[in-house]
């Protein structure tokens, strides 16, 4: 599944770039994130409990940041695995200044497997969009806090 979109975060690219790679900010913004542990430079392990209304899934996974070009872009690699399925995604986040804020454009591809891939077809797209939106909304709220 290809996903792309953009979201504007109310901070300059430098700060946005840093926040988007800050474990604490990530942990607070990733939907359902329960634990995020740094395991190496730019590598994290996480546990998530993703809840969308009645649907719920526990995932354990990894996040890796690569191809860093401060403050313009970086590559994000995410893997998660749980009883209801797994996902593996890779995407490039491109940051461009926009009137003191930053437009974050994401463009990537997500593979989904297991039960969620087999029975979730109808709403995978909408759900992915929703989770991304939630992430950026939380990130935006965080950006607005004074650092």
């Amino acid at each position: 599944m290809k996903i792309s979109g953009s979201y504007t975060l109310p901070a300059a690219p430098e700060r946005t770039y840093a926040l988007l790679q800050d474990p604490e900010a990530l942990a607070a913004s990733m939907p359902g994130c329960r634990e995020l542990v740094r395991t190496a430079e730019d590598e994290y392990e996480m546990k998530m409990n993703v809840v969308i209304s009645s649907i719920q899934g526990l995932f354990a996974g990894k996040i890796r940041v690569a191809d860093k070009e401060f403050p313009a872009r970086f590559r994000l690699l995410v893997e998660g695995d749980g009883k209801i399925g797994f996902l593996k995604g890779e995407g490039v986040l491109t940051l461009s200044p926009a009137d003191g804020a930053t437009e974050v454009h994401y463009d990537g591809e997500v593979q989904v497997g297991g039960m969620i891939a087999g029975v979730g077809q109808r709403l995978l797209d909408a759900t992915a969009k929703y989770l991304i939106k939630r992430f950026f909304e939380k990130m935006a709220a965080r950006v607005e806090q004074p650092s």
Binding site: Q111, V112, G113, G114, A117, G118, V119, Q121, R122
Partner: peptide, 14 residues
């Protein structure tokens, strides 16, 4: 099947 071999018509819902 998607490109990764997941059967995406996995139930009578699809």
């Amino acid at each position: 099947y998607d490109d990764n071999g997941q059967l995406v018509t996995g139930e009578l819902m699809d």
